[in-house]
Amino acid sequence: MTQANPQLNQHGELIHLLSIEGLSREILHGILDRAEPFTAVAEREVKKVPLLRGKSVFNLFFENSTRTRTTFEIAAKRLSADVINLNINTSSAAKGESLLDTVDNLAAMQADMFVVRHASSGAPYLIAQHLAATGRDHIHVVNAGDGRHSHPTQGLLDMYTIRHYKQDFTKLTVAVVGDILHSRVARSQLHALVTLGVPEIRLVGPQTLLPTAAAQMIPNAPLRVCHDMAEGLRGADVVMMLRLQNERMQGALLPSPQEYFKSYGLTPEKLALAKPDAIVMHPGPMNRGVEIDSAVADGRQAVILPQVTFGIAVRMAVMSMLAGVSQ
């Protein structure tokens, strides 16, 4: 039995952005195409366009994040929306209010869009389902990161960056390096890379973080696990680094940051194994000297700051697409 994709309406148009999994290549390219003109908005005298004028966007962050929240806020403001930031950690949830009660209250304040980050996988799905079940599906939901599941706008901005520098996905070798299994960023990246037709995707990391079976995480996808950094990087067009989360150090999965850096930290010497025009990406925040050397992070192949800039355009595209869709 096939279930209707909760992200799409009956015409196949995007009404929520919950995960990259389940979106077609056509939709992904459609979002990237739409993002392109938004990159120029920041260069105008008036850095604002009126596509979301009069709309209320609620940033619901049940988990801390400064950068993602800020880029969503900038994107919504450049679309002329009114943005309300709720840091739920310190408000109602701390007083015991349930997720759906919080959503009901904000919907009663005439919200048009929720941007949701939550430590539990599936929380944005739950909100979207709840809104549909209660006849309020004119309110759109954007997943800004849920548990270990998905961080779709990060995945999309990474694809925008790759397309910007490399154009054709179907000729690329991409290495994703780090704590892939625990990373919602990696999960979104991998689904996007596979959907866009990248023929060789290498998952690079230590055995303790990355069992060989990880190659099966997306069935029939060209994923290959490499426990050797040199093997993973050789001839790559794109190197996508992941942030090593400090909590992994405590679970006996990794010996020490220094030890990790020695094997899997991206140094100029290791990067030299990739193609000479390979680009280096990182979703931020970076741990210099743990997963990436400063000489690489600040080097000519790094596109880490352009990723941030493109992220605003991609989020503007997503929000204006959702708001512009009729039910």
Binding site: E13, G30, R34, E36, P37, L51, S320, A323, G324, S326
Partner: peptide, 11 residues
Amino acid sequence: HHLGNGLRAGG
């Protein structure tokens, strides 16, 4: 735009 035909791909 709110009628669903505002932004075309490749603008």
